[in-house]
Design a protein around this nucleic acid. Sequence first.
DNA 1: ATAAAATCGGATAATTTTATCTGAATTTAA
DNA 2: TTAAATTCAGATAAAATTATCCGATTTTAT
Lengths: 144, 144
Amino acid sequence: MFSKACEYGIRASIYITLKSLQNVRVSLKDIAKEIDSPEAFTAKILQQLAKSKIIDSVKGPSGGFDINKKKIETITLTEIVKAIDGDSIFEGCGLGLKKCSEKHPCPVHNKFKKVREDLKKMIDTTTLYELSLGLKDGSTFLKH
Amino acid sequence: MFSKACEYGIRASIYITLKSLQNVRVSLKDIAKEIDSPEAFTAKILQQLAKSKIIDSVKGPSGGFDINKKKIETITLTEIVKAIDGDSIFEGCGLGLKKCSEKHPCPVHNKFKKVREDLKKMIDTTTLYELSLGLKDGSTFLKH
DNA sequence: ATAAAATCGGATAATTTTATCTGAATTTAA
DNA sequence: TTAAATTCAGATAAAATTATCCGATTTTAT
């Protein structure tokens, strides 16, 4: 569904959200440990998210990553997915045709349309804030 | 969604279905041309499908691939996907957690569940026969 | 000022996926 | 029986993705 990079990116974002709500900035090392991801690779992904202005990064001791508290409730999964995987997941044809459209559909075009729209709707309406709640109350997890 | 190999596999299967319904066996070359896929790579995929007993292969001149007519109406996309991509698409966690379950869910577990179930239901009930109809009447396409 | 703690950026490496090549085996038909 | 048309199998190559390494830069705290 998503690339590994995107999976890490989403998991990291949810963790950063959780901590940001507690006014705590978190380091790469901390993030990688908490989401059980390769540190250096995760660094690259966080850089992408920072460049896309989804998260903020601060260098130096006591530096790390956080998300603006006011922004947290507005950030959706869609923004993160787009920043990392682009919009292949939204646009791509289910059977990989370069030109697949209503006018020139592949055999599964219509059947896929509904599934894809549901997926789109779901990630479009799911916020980081929302996802951090389960983490906070211990009902959901980011590793193992 | 699916791997490239799987996309080619599905497209090839639909084309083989169309021709098999006309009692015509098709060669690799023909298939690759009709679905616009790399020939040698497609060969590997067809071998997988043949080993999985989804399609039949015949060597020698006038050889090629076909599907038993009686079987055509019973073959679903699920069988093809499983033969090529395994069941990662059915089992995998949306965020890549190794152990994600009802008891230990990732933050998007429940939101993904519905989408995934819809996808599963869709490919589980879609047959090759059905997909070949649009091709036959020119309303759907396998390339460009 | 200086040392330490962090991110940043670019190069490189490992792995997986996609794709190609080549020769062997099989089958058909002349 | 031989040549041609095919698939088959294994090796290899190319490309994309995932992952690591290292030195530079920034910032903090002493």
